[in-house]
Amino acid sequence: MEVDKGKGEAEETRKVAEADRDTVTLKSSDGKLFEVSKEAAARLSTVLAGMIAGGSIDDNGTDLKQIGSEALENVVDYCNKHANSIPSAALISSSISFNTAPFKEPEEWERKFVDRLSHDALFDLVEAANFLGMERLLDVTCHKISEMMKGKSPDQIREVFNIKNDYTKEELEEIRQELAWAFYDD
C-alpha cells in the first residue's frame, strides 16, 4: 500500500516536471532524438496531442518506431516552421469557402517546404503525417504529389514516378478503346 502510494507520487512529480517543459523529445526508428515545441506538436498532430494529454510522453525520447530519422526530422522541421508562421489572410479566407475547396491551398512556405524534398522523402513524410494524425501536413504533401500528376498522360505519369506499365496487351487495348483521349501526350 505504502509502496504503491510512493510510486504514484513519483509518477505525479515526473508528470509535473514534464508538464513544465515546453518541448517534447521524439525518437525515430533508427534511434535519433528530436526536440519539438510541445504547443506545436499538440496543435498539429492528433496523435502527439493524445500522448501529451495522456502523459505517455517519455522524457528520454518517445519512441516512434514507424518513422525514420529523415522523415521525423522533416516532421519536426515542419512543426517548428508552422509555429513561427503567421496564418496568412489567404488561409483564413479560404477556410470560409470550404465547400468549393475542401482542401486549403498550401501557403507559400509550405510549398517551398515540400518542393525541396526528394520523392522518397516526400512519400516517407506522407506516411509519417498519416501515422501522427497531422491533417495539415498530410494535406500539403498529398497536394504536392497530386500536382505532379496533373496535366499528364499515363505515360508521362509513369515516367515521373518510375512506374512500370503492368497492363497486359489485351487489357491495354480494352482501356484504349474506352478512353483513347486519356493517352494522348500534350
Partner: peptide
Amino acid sequence: LRLPSLATLVRAALTCR
C-alpha cells in the same frame, strides 16, 4: 482526392493496374 478533375483522375488511374 486532391486531383483537380475527373479527367486527371482517369489519366492517373490508368497508369498501372
